[in-house]
Structure formats: C-alpha cells, structure tokens
C-alpha cells in the first residue's frame, strides 16, 4: 500500500494507469484501524489489478474537502482520473471484494 498527499495525489491517484482504491483515514479513527488489515490483504490479492492508496485526512484536509469526505473510513475507487464508486464506514472483507469487483471489472 502507498500513501498519497496533497502534493502527489494527482500523480499517484488521478494519473495512475491502474484503478486506485483510495482509503481516506485518520490516526484517531478506530474503525479505520480495524479496516487496515483487510485493506492490506486486499492490496496483496489485487496487486496486479489495482493500487491501494491511503490518504490521512488530518494531514491532507484539502483532499478530504475536494472529495466531500464526511465520514471515515471512506473508500473510493478512481480510474482514468474519474471517481468510479465510493463506500463509507466499515465493510466486511467479502463486501469489500464485491465493491472492488463491481467497479474495477467494468473498466
């Protein structure tokens, strides 16, 4: 998994040739921490198909504002510079897999 910030977000996410799953999180967010191992697993399993990128909203408030992040964890899939889908709150491993498949296979 990579980290992105306000300076490299365009390169790391918006101009990425692969679909990107962006995880908006914060260090104080317990559900975000609970989700982290699931995302690590997903990043390993989908390594050939997608990149998983984490964005700390405390460090990068402009990105949270730009994408209208109202609650965390918030996951967003971006491909070819466009948002393809988002889901907020905790999510099971199976549901996360279905979410990624629904928005990645179509591209």
């Amino acid at each position: 998994m990579k980290n992105a910030n306000e300076h490299d977000f365009e390169e790391v996410v918006m101009k990425n040739e692969k679909p990107v799953l962006v995880d908006f999180w914060a260090p104080w967010c317990a559900p975000c921490k609970a989700l982290a191992p699931t995302l690590e697993e997903l990043a390993r399993e989908y390594a050939d198909e997608i990149d998983v990128v984490k964005v700390d909203i405390d460090e990068n408030p402009a990105l949270a504002s730009r994408f209208g992040v109202r609650g965390i964890p918030m996951l967003m899939i971006v491909h070819n510079g466009e948002e393809k889908g988002r889901t907020a709150g905790t999510i099971s491993r199976s549901r996360l897999d279905a979410f990624v498949d629904a928005h990645v296979d179509d591209n």
Binding site: P37, T38, E41, S92, R93, S94
Partner: peptide, 11 residues
C-alpha cells in the same frame, strides 16, 4: 458470504 474464501485467508 463471509465463508466464501479459502481456509488459508487470514480472517
């Protein structure tokens, strides 16, 4: 749906 993974999947 939670069971639809191989037994080696960590969680």
């Amino acid at each position: 749906e939670a069971a639809a993974w191989p037994g080696t999947m960590r969680t």
